[in-house]
Simulated scan of single mutants.
Amino acid sequence: MHSSPSRKRALPLDRNLYQLRYRVECFFHDLKRFRAVATRYDKTGPSYLAVLHIASMLLWLR
């Protein structure tokens, strides 16, 4: 979370940006738990996007 100890000057940390990034990473982790999303069974773009929408809605309703 902090800069490397070998740095002479510590880099600033934007906690709000870090929290948002963490939430996005957790969302993608949860999304990949859906097998159809992780393995991409659907070959066409529109059908894969539909699976993404359904999985996202299920996660949001949870």
Rank of each mutant, 00 (worst) to 15 (best):
V24F: 06
K32H: 09
W60T: 07
R21T: 09
D14E: 13
H2L: 12
A55T: 06
F34M: 12
L59N: 01
R15G: 08
R15I: 15
S47M: 07
H53P: 03
E25H: 09
S47A: 09
K43F: 06
L11T: 11
Q19F: 05
R40H: 02
T44R: 00
R33A: 05
S4K: 10
L59R: 07
D30L: 13
T44Y: 02
A10W: 04
L58V: 04
D42H: 12
T39H: 06
C26E: 09
L59Y: 04
R33V: 00
R35N: 04
A50G: 06
L17C: 11
R7A: 15
R15V: 15
R33W: 00
I54H: 11
L52P: 05
W60C: 04
I54G: 12
F28H: 12
N16K: 14
L20C: 06
H29L: 03
A36E: 09
L52H: 02
P46D: 13
I54F: 10
R21N: 07
L17I: 04
K43E: 08
N16A: 15
A10Y: 05
Y41K: 02
P12K: 10
A36S: 08
T44V: 02
L52C: 13
L52Y: 03
L11Q: 14
S4P: 04
K43T: 15
R35V: 04
S6G: 11
T44C: 00
H2R: 09
K8Q: 14
W60D: 06
H53M: 07
T44H: 01
S3E: 09
A38Q: 02
R23L: 03
T39R: 08
R23H: 05
S56A: 13
T39P: 01
A38W: 01
R33F: 00
R62C: 05
Y18G: 07
K32L: 11
S3M: 04
L31E: 06
N16D: 13
L11S: 15
R15C: 11
F34C: 14
H29T: 00
S4H: 15
C26V: 09
V37P: 02
T39Y: 03
D30I: 06
